[in-house]
């Protein structure tokens, strides 16, 4: 999609990318995210041991972090550092698969509902609102429990099921925005010129929905990570798929939280939390770039205090001259 759209994206001196990274929230968020993506890609390769490797079969006391085992061991003497390195891959993969599928679904449903209007809009809106009211995680729990054990280890299948319970939010937001864009002059003129329906949607409307698409994608990925971690923490995912969630599940089973073995449950929980925070920061930054009025300027450029916002007036900050929303 992107190679076709690129010429239409606004280009200006300084470029969009550096502006994105200049926002501290986006910069911090993408750095953390990059770290975890690298971890997901290469973690399993650099892990010193396999996830089911056990240092000893006699010892049944969890050992705190040491030079030999950087994050200590659990009751069964698994190397927790190796498990942590390997555990990110499935979590991130599933969340991204869910994000992509859900975003595609939400564009299909949301944009067509908003653009077509009438009967189609009514039907698609009802569908969206129904899916919005369904408790996704509970449905996932029931579905996962009913599936044969072999299938609950398939990342793509899990991602698809999570996506099915997550697309409605984006669809609703996209529909609202499409409704607003549909009657804009430039869309009208494209229609008058005789552009086809598909062409108008793809080339006139969709580029203007990109920021919303991005933020709904990120939102879905956050949801996917939470959903997958929760499901595997509940023991509903095939335990041979090592992930942060399954680590927490084993920790829970051996009541690690109440026996003071913080090195067992702490690191995987922190990893899940940090991925979520990184994505939330990204989302936050995108929101502010799309809508400069929502920005909070605690400090102006160069450390001086930003302007005071008064009623009805949004002061223009000089550093933001290049920004059009």
């Amino acid at each position: 999609m992107s190679p076709v759209l690129r010429p239409r994206l606004p280009r200006r001196a300084g470029g969009g990318r550096s502006r994105l990274l200049r926002t501290p929230k986006v910069a911090v968020g993408s750095l953390i995210l990059l770290f975890f993506v690298l971890l997901a890609l290469f973690g399993p390769m650099v892990a010193p041991h396999s996830t089911d490797w056990r240092a000893s079969r006699l010892d049944n006391v969890p050992h705190p972090p040491s030079g030999r085992f950087w994050l200590g061991t659990d009751v069964q003497q698994h190397d927790l550092f190796s498990q942590l390195l390997a555990g990110g891959r499935d979590t991130l993969l599933i969340a991204f698969v869910a994000g992509i599928i859900a975003t595609v679904l939400s564009v299909l449903v949301g944009v067509s509902a908003g653009y077509l209007g009438g009967r189609a809009d009514e039907v698609l809106s009802i569908l969206t609102n129904i899916f919005l009211a369904l408790p996704g995680l509970l449905i996932l729990m029931v579905v996962m429990k009913m599936m044969p054990d072999g299938d609950t280890g398939n990342p793509l299948l899990i991602g698809a099921v999570i996506a099915l319970s997550a697309w409605a939010w984006g669809a609703r937001v996209l529909r609202a925005q499409t409704l607003a864009l549909r009657n804009q002059d430039y869309v009208e003129s494209a229609r008058v010129v005789g552009e086809g329906r598909v062409r108008i949607i793809l080339f006139e409307i969709l580029p203007n929905l990109l920021p919303i698409l991005a933020s709904s994608f990120i939102f879905t990925v956050i949801y996917g990570i939470g959903a997958y971690a929760s499901l595997s923490w509940l023991g509903l995912i095939n335990p041979t798929n090592a992930s942060w969630g399954t680590m927490l599940n084993t920790a829970q089973q051996f009541s690690a939280t109440t026996s003071g073995t913080w090195w067992w449950y702490g690191p995987p929980a922190l990893c899940v939390a940090f991925v979520g925070i990184a994505l939330a920061l990204l989302n936050f930054g995108i929101d502010e770039i799309v809508n400069p009025r929502m920005r909070s300027t605690r400090r102006g450029p160069g450390g001086r205090r930003g302007p005071r916002f008064q009623l009805g007036l949004t002061p223009v900050v000089r550093a933001e001259e290049g920004i059009r929303s």
């Binding site: 971690a229 939280t257 939390a273 920061l281 936050f284 909070s296 930003g306 302007p307």
Partner: peptide, 28 residues
């Protein structure tokens, strides 16, 4: 706007971005 409370916004999103079961375990 741009007051002290705005600086707290990212902190509030922390609670939103972390799965419920981790937040619950943290408080517990």
């Amino acid at each position: 706007r741009s007051g002290l409370l705005d600086a707290l916004l990212p902190a509030a999103t922390f609670f939103q971005a972390v799965p419920y079961f981790i937040l619950a375990s943290l408080l517990m």
